[in-house]
């Protein structure tokens, strides 16, 4: 029975991906991409990776989909270049060969991951009991710091290359009550995800994405207008604080223990939760700014 479900899900994922890749209508393609994201998240729940599934649903499908939808109308449709059938066929054949090669390569060796015994052995020292959080914020915190740096650079790039801003939706009588419900809920859920990330699926990235969803609801409802320099400034400062605080924490740990990102004995959980709390706010602010574009002063 579960196998039938898995088969249906796998077929569904591929089918929706084909729609996302080859649909002529842009909105249909983006819609299919979002559906694919949710189906993939479902499959990852089945594979016992709920942390990643949460992130894929919130960020991979939700936010990326929103970004693509924002741009779908604005991007000019480029005139279709007449591609020779031969080159399309050649690319198709190469892709088929590539798929075969990839499948054979993945299935030909039984993977013996080196990590699970190490993670199991060291999880007690990491300060948290959710192994994914332990990897992200303790064992491989350097990866995560650099990942925050990626968000930072993307934000700088979007600020340097400003685009026209998102027009808030026309305020109807239902929007304000909706925002009144959704925004507090998103704060609540994100706080819950952040706190629970130590022991169960969740963490700073999922929490940040949910909070960003609430922020976007505010922006789209027109309740938060980033035109005011103050609000834009606060949001930008929050976004920058992620890398700043994480970097400062790294310096502090190096000074305290002699190891970069090596938390003092017995205090790992406090450090991790503190860093994650700041990261949640910073990620949410960064994602809102990435979606909304930067403040562009149009000379008039």
């Amino acid at each position: 029975m579960t196998q039938l479900f898995d088969a249906l899900l796998a077929v569904g994922i591929v089918g929706v991906a084909v729609a996302a890749l080859f649909a002529n209508d842009r909105f249909a393609a983006v819609g299919a991409f979002m559906v694919m994201g949710f189906l993939v998240a479902l499959s990852w729940v089945r594979l016992g990776a709920p942390d990643v599934a949460l992130a894929e649903a919130a960020i991979g499908a939700g936010l990326t989909g929103a970004l693509l939808l924002r741009s779908a109308r604005r991007l000019r449709v480029e005139p279709k270049m007449c591609q020779s059938r031969w080159s399309v066929a050649a690319s198709g054949l190469i892709s088929i060969g590539f798929a075969g090669l990839l499948y054979a390569a993945i299935t030909s060796v039984p993977t013996v991951p080196a990590y699970p015994p190490l993670v199991a052995e060291r999880l007690g020292e990491s300060g948290v009991s959710n192994p994914v959080t332990a990897v992200l914020l303790n064992f491989r915190a350097w990866d995560t710091l650099l990942e925050i740096a990626v968000l930072f650079v993307a934000l700088v790039l979007v600020i340097v290359v400003p685009v026209s801003r998102v027009r808030p939706a026309p305020l109807g009588e239902m929007v304000v009550p909706f925002a009144k419900v959704v925004v507090p809920l998103s704060v609540l859920i994100s706080g819950h995800l952040l706190w629970q990330g130590a022991d169960a699926p969740g963490g700073a990235f999922q929490a940040g994405a949910v909070l960003a969803g609430g922020g976007l609801a505010l922006v789209l409802a027109g309740a938060m207008r980033l035109k005011k320099p103050l609000q834009g400034g606060i949001l930008r400062a929050t976004a920058l604080s992620g890398l700043a605080v994480f970097g400062a924490a790294a310096v502090a740990t190096a000074a305290l223990t002699g190891h970069l990102l090596g938390y003092p004995d017995g205090q790992a959980k406090i450090w991790i939760l503190g860093i994650e709390a700041v990261l949640t706010l910073a990620i949410a602010a960064t994602l809102v700014l990435l979606f909304h574009g930067s403040v562009r002063r149009v000379p008039k």
Partner: peptide, 18 residues
């Protein structure tokens, strides 16, 4: 499912949205 590639994938998702 091994936790370390889960962390890789999570990182990859965030990098890709940026």
């Amino acid at each position: 499912t091994d936790a370390v590639p889960q962390a890789f994938v999570l990182t990859g998702i965030v990098v890709l949205v940026a």
